Amino acid sequence: MESPETSKFRAVLFDRDGTLVVDVPYNGDPALVRPVPGAKAVLDGLRAEGIATGVISNQSGIARGLITEADVAGVNARVEELLGPFDVWEVCPHSEQDGCACRKPQPGMVHSACRKLGIAESEAALIGDIGADVRAAEAAGATGVLVPTPVTRAEEVAAARLVAPDLAAAVGLLQGTP
Rank of each mutant, 00 (worst) to 15 (best):
E2P: 15
S7T: 10
F9P: 12
A11F: 13
L13C: 12
F14D: 01
F14G: 02
D15W: 09
R16I: 10
T19V: 11
T19A: 12
L20V: 13
V21S: 14
D23M: 01
P30Q: 10
P30H: 11
R34E: 13
P35E: 07
V36L: 15
A39W: 05
V42T: 14
V42E: 05
E49N: 07
I51T: 13
A52N: 11
T53M: 10
V55E: 06
S57L: 08
N58E: 05
Q59M: 06
S60V: 02
G61T: 00
L66I: 08
A70L: 07
D71K: 01
L83F: 10
F86W: 04
D87H: 11
V88Q: 08
E90W: 03
P93D: 10
H94C: 12
S95Y: 02
Q97M: 05
Q97W: 08
C102Q: 05
K104R: 15
P105W: 12
P105T: 08
M109P: 06
M109V: 04
G118T: 01
A120V: 01
S122E: 13
D133G: 10
V134N: 08
A137K: 04
G141V: 01
G144K: 03
L146F: 03
L146C: 02
T149C: 04
P150K: 05
A154G: 02
E155V: 02
E155A: 02
A158Y: 05
A159V: 01
A159Q: 03
A160I: 01
A160L: 00
R161A: 05
A164S: 06
A164I: 12
L167D: 07
A170C: 09
G176N: 01
T177I: 06
P178Y: 02
